[in-house]
Simulated assay, not measured.
Amino acid sequence: MIETDLTALLLRATVGATMIAHGWNHAFGGGRLAGTARWFESIGIKPGRVHAALATATELGAGVLLLVGLGNAAAAGAVLGTMLVALVANHLRNGFFIFNKGEGYEYVLMISVVALALAALGPGRVSLDHLLGLQEIAGHALTGWTGLLTAAAIGAGGATALLALCWRPTDTGPAS
């Protein structure tokens, strides 16, 4: 269906470009990677330098993969994982709205839900997954519940592991 393919392309392009911009800003914006590392340390994610590099690489890599439509469910899972870490480690305590002090969670929640929806929808026919015949693994289509659960397992599993092993919050109040 042309509508489904167009929807998938629009979602992939939007989320992919957003994640590339976010990763690029971590690496080359304001404080560059060193500033991102200091910020990670300030919210209790340690070692900051390692996590800044990993988050940046994940955002850039997942963004590119979504943009070209390759590994759709896994790329959506990587986006979900980074957003869940941001949600728990920084945004949740600041309320819903992004304009709240410390930035609320509406932005990361929206990207998380769209990533899951994109995993369920699939990459569409305008994608490298379709071109290379990679929309199925072991006879199972990576769309619908399979795509959604794949992305959820990757994202929630990665975020849970990172938070359990590396997040040591020092402040429970709103971020400044």
Results as ranks from 00 to 15, higher is better:
W145Y: 06
A156L: 12
T58R: 01
F96H: 05
A120G: 03
I43T: 03
A53L: 13
S176C: 10
I43C: 03
T36N: 05
L165S: 07
T58I: 14
G16L: 12
I45W: 02
F40R: 00
L33W: 07
G122Q: 04
K46F: 01
P123W: 11
L60W: 02
G104I: 04
D171I: 08
T160S: 14
L118Q: 12
I154W: 05
G29H: 13
E59N: 04
N94L: 02
T160Q: 05
L92A: 15
N90L: 07
N25I: 01
D171M: 07
G158M: 09
T170P: 00
V108F: 06
A74C: 00
A73G: 03
A151M: 06
I20F: 04
E3D: 15
L65A: 14
A175F: 13
G61K: 01
R12F: 12
A17E: 00
T160F: 15
A34I: 06
L92M: 15
G158I: 08
M110G: 01
H51N: 07
L128I: 08
T7S: 08
F40D: 00
V85R: 03
K101G: 04
A75C: 02
I43N: 03
L10T: 03
L84S: 04
V68P: 02
G71S: 06
G44S: 05
L54F: 14
L70K: 00
F40G: 01
L6F: 15
L121R: 09
T18E: 06
A175V: 11
L9P: 08
R93Y: 10
A119H: 07
L128N: 04
A151P: 04
W24L: 10
I43F: 15
T36A: 12
A138W: 15
W24G: 09
T58M: 10
L84G: 04
L6S: 13
A161Y: 15
A86V: 08
V79A: 00
G31F: 14
L109Q: 09
A119Q: 08
R125H: 12
A156V: 12
L165A: 13
A115F: 10
A52H: 02
L10R: 00
A115L: 07
Y107C: 01
T160E: 01
I154C: 02
L142A: 09
G44M: 06
L148I: 15
D171L: 08
F97L: 09
G95E: 08
T170C: 03
G35K: 09
L11P: 02
F96E: 07
L163N: 10
N100Y: 05
L142N: 04
A159S: 14
R32P: 02
L109E: 11
T56R: 02
G147E: 09
G102D: 11
N25P: 00
